[in-house]
């Protein structure tokens, strides 16, 4: 990533090759359209290229920063397409990721694949109700109030499921790592 910050196209290409498939997967999961997804993918990596100097590896892994950029691009597309009120656009999303404590980014594709597998394993252990709330928030960009309206659940139940969902996710991820 330091080489990308130094405007090294070869290093940037290397990052693209490694992360483009999972990033496109995230985008398509949000907008459900591959063609538009590829546009958002390109814009996401273009933003990485142009804002590489703002990335601080001490504050979090590169992939978290990249995924947050891609998610924002996808949700922007979704909002323009749906033209409906959504959760406030989190302009500091990348920086919050960067600020979050995180393990060292080993920078290997295998590590990414292992992390993804661990996450899927943890998600499989979540209850369907908790997973639904997390997905509606993260991949659909719905506010907590919209989730309540969409699911017909009381707002308090939405709060509980989101909170427990994230707690369980951390717990299951830790369990996976220990296994």
């Amino acid at each position: 990533m330091a080489r990308v910050t130094a405007r090294d196209p070869d290093a940037f290409e290397h990052l693209y090759d490694r992360y483009a498939p999972i990033t496109l997967g995230i985008i398509v999961k949000i907008i459900q359209d591959r063609a538009e997804g590829e546009e958002a993918l390109q814009e996401s990596f273009w933003r990485v290229w142009n804002q590489a100097a703002t990335f601080d590896p001490a504050k979090g892994p590169f992939r978290a920063w990249l995924f947050s950029i891609a998610r924002r691009q996808a949700l922007d597309l979704l909002r323009r397409r749906n033209v409906r009120p959504q959760a406030a656009r989190d302009e500091d999303e990348e920086r919050r990721f960067e600020q979050a404590p995180a393990p060292d980014d080993v920078g290997q594709a295998a590590e990414l694949a292992i992390a993804a597998e661990q996450m899927r394993g943890a998600l499989n252990r979540l209850s369907g109700e908790q997973l639904q709330v997390l997905e509606l928030a993260y991949f659909k960009g719905l506010t907590r109030q919209e989730i309540a309206r969409t699911t017909g659940l009381p707002l308090g139940t939405v709060h509980t499921r989101a909170r427990l969902g994230l707690q369980n996710l951390r717990s299951f991820m830790g369990a996976t790592n220990d296994e």
């Binding site: 999961k29 978290a64 998610r71 990721f97 899927r120 991949f139």
Partner: peptide, 30 residues
């Protein structure tokens, strides 16, 4: 810490190889 947990949700997505055109256009811009 909670944000870090939530960030992991991105890995729920299934990887999709993008078309070569995306990379070609992007690298041309770069």
């Amino acid at each position: 810490a909670l944000a870090q947990d939530a960030a992991g949700l991105a890995l729920m997505a299934t990887p999709i190889p993008p078309s070569p055109t995306v990379k070609a256009v992007l690298m041309a811009r770069v």
